[in-house]
């Protein structure tokens, strides 16, 4: 039995309909709101000195945020473009042996630290280096497996009777894939994409160490300033962003699920 992993990786048992889904839907904004309010309250009781005020300038934060979102968006896009077709290939009958290897290694590879992967890729020769391109490649490498895995699992769990029925009606292999298998696999694939998205938001925080910018810069600035108030604010902003991205992805996942099932 394989229950576990990153949230949403295997979602069948977790997401149930009814009361729970609404509680789920409301809880994240509530947590963000409460946490944000707590931090804001704390900051407002302190008078900021010049350095602190400069570090927390909205314009600076917004520019970091923009970079962060761009990094996340590109890397997630690349992950999908690479992992989904690969997953489809791996889900075909002929690829059974490679598939099993990938699925087995996939779990273990969670132990590979994205931090190290990011730095390794930045150390590679041009076009890699300390630039956004290697950051995006690093993010892709770190987030590829969940999407790959869920694509394979999603396609494999489609009821074989349905596929047989489709073939029996005279659908070609390609038509069966696009009109029967993929639509039925979408919810599971979406769950994988959501995990990748959240991983990317998190790993992109480390991009600043290899010249990629993003909200990690805010944290690094705060650390070098050695001002707890800036540090906590920076941490809270990053945490809030990750939670909200996950929440939006969760809403999207739910919409897709509602439409397909």
């Amino acid at each position: 039995m394989s229950v576990g992993g990153v949230p949403g990786l295997i979602t069948v048992s977790r997401r149930r309909k009814g009361m729970r889904s609404y509680a789920d839907l409301l809880s994240t904004p509530l947590i963000v709101l409460l946490g944000g309010a707590a931090v804001a309250l704390w900051v407002s009781t302190r008078t900021l000195d010049d350095i602190e005020a400069r570090a927390l300038q909205p314009s600076a934060i917004l520019s970091d945020l923009g970079q962060h979102l761009i990094l996340t968006a590109y890397s997630t896009l690349f992950v999908i473009v690479i992992a989904v077709p690969l997953g489809i290939l791996l889900s075909r009958k002929g690829a059974r042996r490679i598939r099993n290897v990938v699925l087995a290694v996939g779990g273990f590879a969670q132990a590979l630290p994205p931090y190290g992967v990011l730095v390794l890729i930045a150390f590679a020769p041009a076009p890699f280096g300390f630039n956004p391109f290697s950051v995006i490649m690093g993010l892709v490498a770190a987030a590829l497996l969940p999407v790959l895995r869920n694509t394979v699992v999603g396609l494999r769990q489609v009821d074989p009777a349905l596929i047989e029925a489709a073939r029996g009606m005279g659908m070609s292999g390609r038509a069966t894939l696009f009109r029967v298998e993929l639509p039925l696999a979408v919810p599971v694939m979406m769950a994988g994409i959501r995990v990748a998205l959240v991983l990317n938001v998190g790993t992109a925080v480390l991009a600043t160490f290899v010249g990629g910018g993003g909200l990690g810069s805010l944290i690094v600035r705060a650390q070098t300033l050695n001002r707890p108030i800036v540090l906590v604010t920076a941490g809270a902003i990053v945490a809030a962003l990750a939670l909200m991205v996950d929440w939006l992805a969760g809403v999207a996942e739910r919409l897709v699920r509602a439409r397909t099932s």
Binding site: P7, T28, V201, G202, Q223, G235, L243, D246
Partner: peptide
């Protein structure tokens, strides 16, 4: 479950600096 799932979503560096104080 909801709260611990949310905690797992928080990027590691962010959680670490939040715990620093």
């Amino acid at each position: 479950l909801v709260v611990t799932a949310a905690a797992l979503t928080v990027p590691s560096l962010a959680l670490l600096v939040l715990l620093l104080p």
